[in-house]
Design a protein around this nucleic acid. Structure first.
Lengths: 214, 214
DNA sequence: GCAAAAACAATCATGATTGTCTTTAATATT
DNA sequence: AATATTAAAGACAATCATGATTGTTTTTGC
């Protein structure tokens, strides 16, 4: 699957109220979830079409009936992963509590989950896989833009000092994602998680301009 | 190559002063370097034996003469990568200047290089490849232990407050490696590198106990 | 020089993955 | 009820990576 050229999106079968044929959608979902599971279990490179079909509990023939090739399935899985990320993100940021502490913990929870694992598998694979990068990078960019915009909304009074605001965001992103990735690769001392999170929060608070400090 | 079980080390041909047969060592080196190049160029999963042989400019048969199988070659490549890292590390830490600024920049330089890229490829692959993890994790651990020990040597007067010392180290590791990895995966805004590095330095200085502050 | 050993090259058989094609079962339409 | 459509399964040929085997050329030791 890894090396498969990835084509454009499949023409959605028009949202007529197809009755039983809508269970085809269930099968597609099953396949997409199986693909994500395989990425998490075996890594991107070993997420092969036989493995995915096996994980989904169906034949490879059935699978290729719903997705014309492995690349199309992978593309759909990436779209779903992206949606998952955005959903989790909206849920976190949409909370009524906008304290730094809450937000840091929420994002940490988010990237501690397996969705982030899958995403990083894809992200690193895309380093050396151009066709994969072509569909993944836009998703990454969109996520980052939304992250940034959301942060602006959450801290409007911080916008006078853009430099420090940007620093707080970049710091958060790199510290948290750095920890998450190091955890994936036997590189994180779990005992240091709490101290680092606390320090990050302290640091963000310190970067807030006086007008924004509660 | 990815899925190959990795055996124990090859019996070194005894350090007698073999004359021309020592050019065998050159070929082995060539193969090991080719393997590392392939990991960087194509990623771990696509570092196959034909590609490596091609990169080294020799036949696959010749390659398998020097390394009994793909796994043995990969193991040797990992050992070499580990050595490279340790060498670069010693060079950085062995400098006479022990300022925080210098050390942060030195480690940043180090993980900005391709050796770190290769290492992260392996590290992530080892998440789902047990036999790879078996040879990579010890190297990772050794590197971390040396890192820690070196830091203790560089900042002896900091040892009274171990909690803050450990925090400074963990923070440095996660921020710097986080940035390096995000850079690999289209996730780093290069404009933020300098501000983050400066902030990290400031932060480390702030964590130093009064007795250690110059 | 000559024989043994090592370096190197080429080929083979095997297993895995991929996409296509064919066949059967289920479901929907008229 | 008959037929067309879709889901699902299986078989197929092509490609590729792997390790083993065999053959050829150098190099080394006697």
């Amino acid at each position: 699957m890894a090396r498969t050229a990835i084509k454009t999106a499949k023409p959605v079968p028009a949202p007529e109220l197809n009755l039983q044929a809508a269970k085809s959608a269930a099968t597609r979902t099953r396949l997409i979830e199986a693909t994500i599971s395989c990425i998490i279990k075996y890594g991107y490179a070993r997420t092969t079409t036989p493995r995915v079909a096996d994980e989904a509990g169906m034949s490879r023939g059935a699978m290729l009936h719903h997705f014309e090739n492995g690349g199309a399935l992978m593309q759909a899985a990436i779209a779903e992963l992206h949606e998952k990320r955005l959903r989790a993100f909206r849920q976190s940021a949409g909370s009524t509590i906008h304290e730094v502490h809450t937000l840091v913990r929420a994002y940490w929870q988010q990237i501690s989950g397996q969705t982030f694992t899958a995403f990083h598998e894809l992200a690193l694979a895309s380093r050396t896989d151009e066709s994969l990068a072509n569909i993944l990078v836009p998703a990454q960019n969109e996520f980052r833009v939304r992250w940034y915009r959301q942060a602006i909304e959450l801290f409007p009074e911080w916008q006078d000092d853009r430099a420090r605001f940007d620093l707080a965001l970049a710091l958060s992103q790199n510290v948290l994602e750095g920890m998450a990735i190091n955890r994936l690769t036997h590189g994180l001392d779990e005992r240091m998680v709490e101290p680092i999170l606390n320090d990050l929060e302290r640091q963000i608070e310190a970067l807030k301009p006086p007008s924004a400090k509660a």
